[in-house]
């Protein structure tokens, strides 16, 4: 589910936050937005259709929730956990993740394009049809994770481990894989060249 409204601040082309009229830059009371989101995460199992562009989260538990149609573009996530979460049709374009975990997580049709991951883990997860194009991954670990049909085009993977992962039809076109390790993964089924 997706629904978007533009920020009502004159001349602003960004999308407004949640059900509010302003984007993160022009919002007069961001603390209320955080509080409302925190209440929703605490009380609801499914969070749908939220624009949370440009917001920052530190040491937050976003675990065991279903996130559908949410926009976290250019957000900052530090020490956050998405464990046991399910994410569908969400976008995290240009977001930064530091020491975050995505364990036993299911993502489908998610865009992490241009995102920055540092010291993050994806353990026993299903990261299917997910867009990591142009992303930078440093010291990240994918362990026992199904990455089928995901794309890492022009991605930069430094000291990143893919252990026992399903890489069928994963696109690594023009990616820098110099420091990536593919132990026990079916890397021969991945795609490295655009035909």
């Amino acid at each position: 589910m997706f629904s978007r409204h533009l920020c009502t601040h004159s001349g602003c082309n960004a999308f407004s936050l949640g059900s509010d009229s302003y984007c993160a830059v022009h919002h007069p009371d961001l603390s209320r937005v955080y509080q409302e989101l925190e209440n929703e995460v605490a009380t609801s199992g499914v969070i749908t259709n939220k624009n949370l562009t440009g917001l920052g989260f530190k040491n937050k538990s976003l675990r065991a929730r279903r996130w559908i149609g949410c926009d976290f573009s250019n957000g900052n996530f530090e020490g956050c956990t998405f464990d046991e979460s399910s994410l569908l049709l969400c976008t995290f374009e240009g977001a930064t993740f530091v020491s975050c975990t995505f364990d036993v997580c299911e993502t489908m049709e998610i865009s992490f394009s241009g995102a920055n991951f540092k010291d993050c883990t994806f353990r026993d997860s299903k990261i299917i049809l997910t867009n990591f194009n142009g992303a930078i991954l440093q010291d990240c670990q994918f362990i026992g994770t199904d990455l089928m049909y995901s794309r890492f085009i022009y991605a930069y993977l430094s000291r990143t481990l893919f252990e026992d992962c399903n890489l069928k039809a994963v696109h690594f076109i023009e990616s820098n894989l110099g420091n990536a390790s593919f132990r026990f993964s079916n890397k021969e089924e991945a795609i490295y060249d655009a035909v």
Binding site: I110, S111, S113, G114, N131, N133, I153, Y154, E174
Partner: peptide, 28 residues
């Protein structure tokens, strides 16, 4: 607009801005 969200028939979603930066065919 660069923030236009792109929904293709195959593969994950993207955005117009991201495609202009990271699409292999454009860059190639």
């Amino acid at each position: 607009p660069k923030q236009t969200i792109l929904f293709p028939s195959s593969g994950p979603p993207s955005s117009v801005g991201a495609e202009l930066k990271t699409n292999y065919s454009f860059r190639h």
